[in-house]
Nucleic acid binder design. Sequence first.
DNA 1: TTTGAATATTGCATTTTTGCGATCTATGCA
DNA 2: TGCATAGATCGCAAAAATGCAATATTCAAA
Lengths: 105, 105
Amino acid sequence: MQAHSPLLDRQLKAIANPQRRQVLEWLRDPRAHFAPQVDGDLVADGVCALRIEEKLGLAQPTTARHLKVLVDAGLLVPKRIKQWTFYRRDEAGLAALRAGLSEQL
Amino acid sequence: MQAHSPLLDRQLKAIANPQRRQVLEWLRDPRAHFAPQVDGDLVADGVCALRIEEKLGLAQPTTARHLKVLVDAGLLVPKRIKQWTFYRRDEAGLAALRAGLSEQL
DNA sequence: TTTGAATATTGCATTTTTGCGATCTATGCA
DNA sequence: TGCATAGATCGCAAAAATGCAATATTCAAA
């Protein structure tokens, strides 16, 4: 039998929400979904939280929590530059999720 | 951008719960996890709800609802024989889930 | 047709998730 | 230093998920 994995559990809960999946999908190709930024490369550094917030159409604290859930699940990498936080996908975490799924499902 | 898929959403919510994942995993190899049954083949027909219930250690209505969530998500196939309901994996639905994931994630 | 067994459904309490406004913290710039 | 901006956190309300006991339904056998 399979041991219960807290990480996989957090990851699956994280992607069980449509808006969080939406963010992950946008960040697959940031240039296709977000305008260029001044203080951080869209791909190398990630997308500014404010841009994600306005695209999601949710309040700032709500968006911040969604992003935190994704970071805590190891699916997003945050990067602080000046007073901004940029987010990009954590491809290693996403690979772990896929691996965990194919093992458990 | 990706259209929101209600099916994928239901499937991901379904597997976001550890006990429902446990059921899916047990049913990958029913003979390894359940004793033989009189009225229905473990593999061809599926596993009796009562057996799943006692193995999960949850009350009967709770287990019934978990199973319903999985059926509604297209991840389990129910089969009524006499007064029993047997459940087996819906491999087509699981394949759709994998496909939806690799497309959206 | 009554009885018993297995499952499904209902109703309710508890917990978790999700949303928001208000506030606190960190950073940059005048 | 003072002030503005971006983001994180707190506190709360509404909604959804999860558990159970009680009850209804379905089916088989007496």
